[in-house]
């Protein structure tokens, strides 16, 4: 592992109480949710992680506390390595501080996460839905949201399904 990367991991672990785990040569730091922005600032300014490569969330549905994990993947164009942050988000009132102030590119990604997972970002400048129509109900990528597929009609059950199928405007 790179020297600067290991010192970064060590520093973040000490300063912000990050728990380090490694899987398939990928390092993940579990950071307390209220310190994510501060940790990212240190990572950007002191350890040359100049890009937020990806930001997403994972829903562990039946579990409520924490229900969500926020996943931040940082990239350093000088070290050419990735580093992952994870932060727990509660299920009852899912919210976390925005990353937009540190990495502007988080703007749309957080709008997407709000749209699809319903996690609110405190301090975000433009908290509107990104992908779904503005009046859509629910957050589709949550595990308790149904896939919403249409039943496939076969010859033996065509009429049975046809009755309960939604009809559009013709």
């Amino acid at each position: 592992m790179n020297e600067l990367l290991s010192s970064a991991i060590k520093a973040l672990g000490e300063k912000f109480g990050g728990q380090v785990s490694e899987f398939r040569d990928e390092v993940t730091l579990l950071i307390p949710p209220d310190k994510v922005t501060a940790a990212a600032t240190v990572l950007r300014d002191e350890f040359t992680f100049d890009m937020l490569s990806a930001e997403t969330a994972v829903d562990y549905c039946p579990q409520t506390n924490p229900r969500f994990h926020m996943v931040y993947i940082f990239y350093s164009t000088t070290l050419k390595v990735y580093l992952t942050f994870r932060a727990h988000v509660n299920g009852d009132d899912p919210k976390i501080a925005t990353m937009e102030t540190v990495y502007p590119s988080a703007n749309w990604r957080e709008r997407e996460i709000w749209d699809l997972f319903g996690i609110r970002f405190e301090g975000h400048s433009d908290m509107r839905r990104l992908l779904m129509p503005p009046n859509w109900e629910g957050h589709p990528l949550r595990k308790d949201y149904p896939l919403g597929y249409e039943e496939v009609q076969y010859s033996f059950n065509f009429d049975e399904i046809d009755v309960r199928k939604p009809k559009g405007v013709r």
Binding site: F23, R24, E26, S53, A54, V58, I73, Y82, T84
Partner: peptide, 20 residues
């Protein structure tokens, strides 16, 4: 069990997939 992140260079830039 675990999560990985893989990337390639697409004609538009870095394309990555996060898989858990």
């Amino acid at each position: 069990v675990g999560s990985v992140y893989a990337t390639v260079e697409s004609p538009r830039g870095e394309m990555g997939v996060f898989l858990e």
